[in-house]
Every structure is written in C-alpha cells, then in structure tokens.
C-alpha cells in the first residue's frame, strides 16, 4: 500500500453515520453496521450546497435592512436593525459585548457566505490549492455557524421579559430572515463534502 491513498481509490467507502469502512463491489449499498445508505461522497454535494447558499444570500438582505426588534415606549416605537443594536451597545459603553454581537451576527454570517462560496468555486473549477488549509477553513466555517443564533435567543429573552403596558419589545421581520440564514448556511456547510477538495488535487 502506498503511503497516501484515498480510501475510495482502493474501493472503500466510509459510512457517514457510523464511520465503518466498507469494501465496495459487493453490491450492498447500505452499511452492514448501522444500515444507513452508503455514499462515497455526499450525494449532489455541490448542487445542494449552492442552492442552500443562494437562498441564504437572498435572505441575508432582508435580515440586515429590516428591523430585528422594536422597542415600544409609551406609544412611540423605536425599531432596531442588527447593525443598529450593535451601535447602540457600543455607544452605551458596552464595548466587549458589542464586539461579541458584531462577530456573531455580522462577521460570522457574512464570512460564512463568502467562505462557502469560495469552497464551491474551488471544487467546481478544480483549483489547485493547499487542500489542508482549505479543509481547515471548511472546519472553521462548520464550527462557527451555530454561534450566530445568539441574536435570535437574545430576542426571545427580551420579548418575553420586556412586556409591560408602557414598555414592550417586539420581534421584527428580520428575526425570521436571520434565523433562516443561520439555518440554511448550517445546512449548506453540512452538505458540502470537504473530500471533494482532495479529490481534485492532481499531485498530493
């Protein structure tokens, strides 16, 4: 056996669900250990990832321009966008928390959209890249995605607690769009198969 060979080129498929390595060619398409369907690579990885990514791009626009929540005080409404909420935190001197929200609700989603886009371009055009570095990028993208839900959880707490006759916080339409962006990009990252990056490299 060579020092570095792909399992697939030796006729092995790794079960996605349980990690069992199966020798292909014996016609069984389900894993002998856990019964799940076997695929050498995630099925339709590029198509699914790009469809999910495209939908999140579209939803990312309303998520940022519409108010994510409105503070009603004594009859007057004060709508906040995602960016507005961060500016307010920083203005009132809460700089670390403001930066935390900036990272979780703006930097993470936007760099995720760009990152998955790059991964797709890279596999589609078979760019010759440092596959290890790109796999690490994929890993970071897959890891940080869920932290963007911070804003949504915060809103659910605020809406619940600040509910008095004169003072009220109401969730805005951007909350739905933003939650959808987070979930769609998580699905997009899950559907992308990093092994495609390695398959395309001519000299490893």
């Amino acid at each position: 056996m060579q020092a570095k060979t792909n399992a697939l080129s030796q006729g092995f498929i790794r079960c996605h669900d349980c990690g069992y390595l199966v020798k292909t060619g014996n016609q069984s398409l389900s894993c002998p250990r856990c019964n799940s369907h076997l695929h050498a690579r995630h099925p339709h990885s590029l198509q699914r990832t790009s469809a999910l990514l495209f939908s999140s791009f579209l939803l990312y626009i309303p998520a940022n321009i519409f108010p994510i929540m409105t503070v009603n005080q004594f009859g007057a409404g004060d709508p906040h966008t995602i960016a507005g909420g961060i500016v307010e935190l920083i203005d009132s001197g809460m700089i670390p928390i403001g930066l935390l929200v900036l990272v979780a609700s703006i930097l993470v989603p936007s760099s995720k959209l760009i990152g998955i886009g790059l991964l797709l371009l890279c596999t589609h055009f078979r760019w010759q890249i440092n596959a290890r570095r790109w796999t690490v990028m994929y890993r970071i993208i897959a890891f940080v995605g869920r932290w963007s839900m911070l804003d949504i959880f915060m809103i659910s707490i605020l809406v619940d607690l600040v509910n008095f006759g004169e003072v009220q916080i109401i969730a805005g339409p951007a909350a739905t769009a933003f939650a959808a962006v987070v979930i769609l990009t998580m699905f997009a990252a899950e559907n992308f198969d990093p092994r495609l990056l390695w398959d395309n490299q001519k000299n490893l």
């Binding site: 792909n6 399992a7 020798k23 014996n26």
Partner: peptide
Amino acid sequence: MNSTNYDACPECDLLL
C-alpha cells in the same frame, strides 16, 4: 470482508 483493518479520514478520505 476484512475492511475493519483499515479506517478512512472523514474529511480527506485518506486510507489509514
């Protein structure tokens, strides 16, 4: 079937 002697990396498919 002696496939259990080997393992594959889930992210780069290296046979191990």
